[in-house]
Computed example of a mutant assay.
Amino acid sequence: MEPWVENYWQLRWDLPSDISYRSSTLPHPACTLSVEHGWTREGVVEPVVVTGVLTRRFDVVLAESGWVFGVKFRPGGYASFTGTVARNLRDVSVAPPTPFRAETVAALAELGGHLNADHCRTVVDSVLAPYARDVEPEYRTVLGIITTMLRDRTLVRVAQVEQRCAIGTRRLQRLFERYVGATPKWVLGRYRIHDAVSELDNGYSGPLADLAARYGWFDQAHFTREFTELVGMPPSAYQP
């Protein structure tokens, strides 16, 4: 599963009946396969769920008790692994996930909080292994572009990415629609917002206009608007 999966994660909670907790996650250009038992998020009625790329902050209220085991695919990984088109999953959750046979979904649904994370990972890898296919060259191209976007913080325009990766505009857009489910501009912007959040987390106390310009926002008001939409508060309130 290594060519397609970025990581596995597990979440467990048990709250008093009069207490709830809002969990918020910044959007990433990745699809997630999850097994969810106990308290479930709104709109989810089956335990095995695939959630496509979310273009907004992921907010969920946790209450009572519950357990989730998740498989976070690499950007483009779920589309490559299943042969699906990522844009069809943008901002939606599908349960049960249609590419998988009923017996696969049933085996995943049997996972639960009584099992440790390593055992769950072993089961997931085992039941998904029959779906593995050859890694297509176009997916490898997408991974290379994503890695370049993520690691090079000086890239703040899609045109820079195209030049660095020697790829045309139309082909880049087509690959991202097929594999990632979001536009190159959106992905690049989210990575740079994440970089700005990381700088603030690490104690950045300089002018916010300088921080915005460093990551491609020459209009501080635009930066503040996007930051607030994703993080839930303006950078001035987030800044230490």
Rank of each mutant, 00 (worst) to 15 (best):
residue 157 R to C: 03
residue 183 T to P: 05
residue 157 R to L: 10
residue 189 G to Q: 14
residue 7 N to F: 13
residue 20 S to D: 05
residue 156 V to P: 00
residue 167 I to D: 02
residue 166 A to P: 00
residue 23 S to T: 01
residue 144 G to F: 01
residue 119 H to D: 09
residue 206 G to K: 14
residue 232 G to P: 02
residue 209 A to N: 13
residue 128 L to T: 11
residue 168 G to R: 13
residue 59 D to Q: 08
residue 125 D to Y: 01
residue 166 A to K: 10
residue 22 R to G: 01
residue 160 Q to L: 09
residue 182 A to Q: 08
residue 66 G to A: 01
residue 187 V to H: 04
residue 91 D to K: 08
residue 34 S to I: 11
residue 220 Q to M: 00
residue 145 I to S: 04
residue 125 D to R: 15
residue 153 R to C: 02
residue 8 Y to L: 05
residue 139 Y to Q: 06
residue 181 G to S: 06
residue 14 D to N: 14
residue 235 P to W: 06
residue 138 E to H: 11
residue 236 S to H: 05
residue 208 L to A: 06
residue 29 P to H: 11
residue 158 V to L: 05
residue 69 F to H: 09
residue 111 L to H: 09
residue 201 D to H: 11
residue 69 F to L: 00
residue 218 F to P: 02
residue 125 D to I: 00
residue 80 S to A: 12
residue 186 W to K: 07
residue 27 P to H: 13
residue 197 V to H: 06
residue 118 D to M: 13
residue 30 A to M: 11
residue 78 Y to T: 05
residue 48 V to Y: 04
residue 135 V to I: 10
residue 206 G to D: 08
residue 220 Q to L: 08
residue 213 A to G: 04
residue 52 G to D: 10
residue 61 V to S: 01
residue 188 L to D: 06
residue 173 Q to S: 14
residue 210 D to F: 07
residue 185 K to E: 14
residue 177 E to Y: 08
residue 232 G to T: 07
residue 110 E to F: 03
residue 139 Y to A: 04
residue 17 S to C: 00
residue 179 Y to F: 15
residue 155 L to I: 06
residue 144 G to L: 01
residue 158 V to G: 06
residue 162 E to M: 15
residue 237 A to S: 12
residue 216 G to P: 01
residue 128 L to K: 10
residue 226 E to M: 09
residue 188 L to M: 03
residue 8 Y to C: 07
residue 55 T to W: 03
residue 184 P to F: 07
residue 63 A to H: 01
residue 158 V to N: 05
residue 109 A to Q: 10
residue 15 L to R: 00
residue 231 V to I: 15
residue 98 T to K: 07
residue 108 L to Q: 05
residue 9 W to F: 13
residue 47 P to C: 05
residue 71 V to I: 12
residue 97 P to D: 15
residue 116 N to K: 11
residue 196 A to M: 14
residue 130 P to A: 04
residue 59 D to N: 15
residue 16 P to A: 04
residue 232 G to Y: 02
residue 66 G to D: 01
residue 86 A to K: 05
residue 182 A to R: 12
residue 233 M to F: 02
residue 51 T to S: 15
residue 229 E to I: 08
residue 113 G to E: 15
residue 15 L to M: 11
